[in-house]
């Protein structure tokens, strides 16, 4: 494959790769660096690409390995990271002011509950062991097949299935315990709280009815609710949506707060 064709193909995959790396790292800076490094490494190794897997799979394998190298020695986030960040945000007037400024002035400053569901998933999936987080994102968000993921992470299909299953079970358990959108006993109401702040004239119930996961929560089993959550996340490009600037700013805040928290704990 010549450079010109490779560049065109890489550009096609860049948005999904960037979103994947953002969800892995919870950092816009890390994600941008990793995309750049993936390009350089792939380009340098282009002569070694034999076409045994699709180019997309090959690019994601490089990106995944770079992300793994970066994150291997970093601590996992706690399951209640969003609680810690909420407390920090409420005590930080500067941050709240910036949020409001973005909300009022940016074309990508809308607050949408769907976007917050995707944002929340990024934060909570960072509490998984690295391999589980990687496999979960590759399968449930990027929609690779098990066989392709085995090639990407350099492990067996059996282990991919195992990681995927354990990751799903952990995430389902966390959401069942925390998310008030799907569970009456859910302790986290940040979606509705933030919607009240950013969209004060909106009727929350009307908004929730538009989200199948919330609307049908009582009638669906936990696995199906998780699949519906994944469908929401699949449909969102965290860089291109109408809520992108607001959510990325919020994510950057959370990353900083959790890094400080992990240093002290």
């Amino acid at each position: 494959m010549d450079t010109e064709r490779f560049n065109a193909a890489f550009e096609d995959h860049r948005p999904q790769l960037r979103a994947f790396l953002l969800r892995m790292t919870a950092s816009t800076e890390d994600a941008e660096d990793l995309v750049q490094d993936t390009y350089l490494k792939a380009h340098a190794g282009l002569s070694g690409y034999r076409g045994e897997s699709s180019l997309k799979t090959w690019i994601f394998a490089i990106g995944s390995n770079l992300a793994r190298d970066l994150l291997r020695h970093r601590k996992r986030w706690p399951e209640h990271a969003t609680d810690i960040c909420r407390e920090a945000a409420l005590a930080n007037r500067e941050f709240l002011g910036e949020m409001m400024q973005i909300r009022m002035t940016s074309p990508q400053g809308q607050f949408e509950i769907r976007e917050h569901i995707a944002f929340c998933f990024t934060c909570i999936s960072k509490s998984l062991p690295l391999e589980q987080q990687l496999v979960l994102l590759l399968k449930e968000v990027c929609e690779f097949r098990v066989k392709e993921i085995a090639g990407i992470i350099g492990n067996t299909e059996a282990m991919v299935k195992y990681y995927l299953h354990t990751a799903r079970q952990k995430m389902i358990g966390i959401f069942d315990n925390r998310c008030s959108l799907i569970s009456k006993n859910g302790i986290c109401h940040q979606c509705s709280e933030l919607n009240g702040i950013f969209n004060p004239k909106q009727n929350l119930q009307e908004e929730l009815v538009k989200i199948e996961m919330a609307r049908d929560a009582e009638n669906k089993d936990k696995e199906t609710l998780f699949d519906l959550r994944m469908r929401i996340i699949q449909a969102i490009d965290p860089y291109e949506s109408e809520a992108a600037e607001l959510q990325l700013h919020h994510l950057q805040h959370n990353k900083q707060v959790i890094e400080n928290y992990l240093e002290k704990n």
């Binding site: 299909e157 299935k161 079970q169």
Partner: peptide
């Protein structure tokens, strides 16, 4: 099930109680 799946279950200590 594939032996690899059973092996993964038998060798991941922290996951056993689940």
């Amino acid at each position: 099930a594939h032996p690899g799946i059973i092996w993964a279950l038998l060798t991941n200590a922290s996951d056993f109680p689940r």
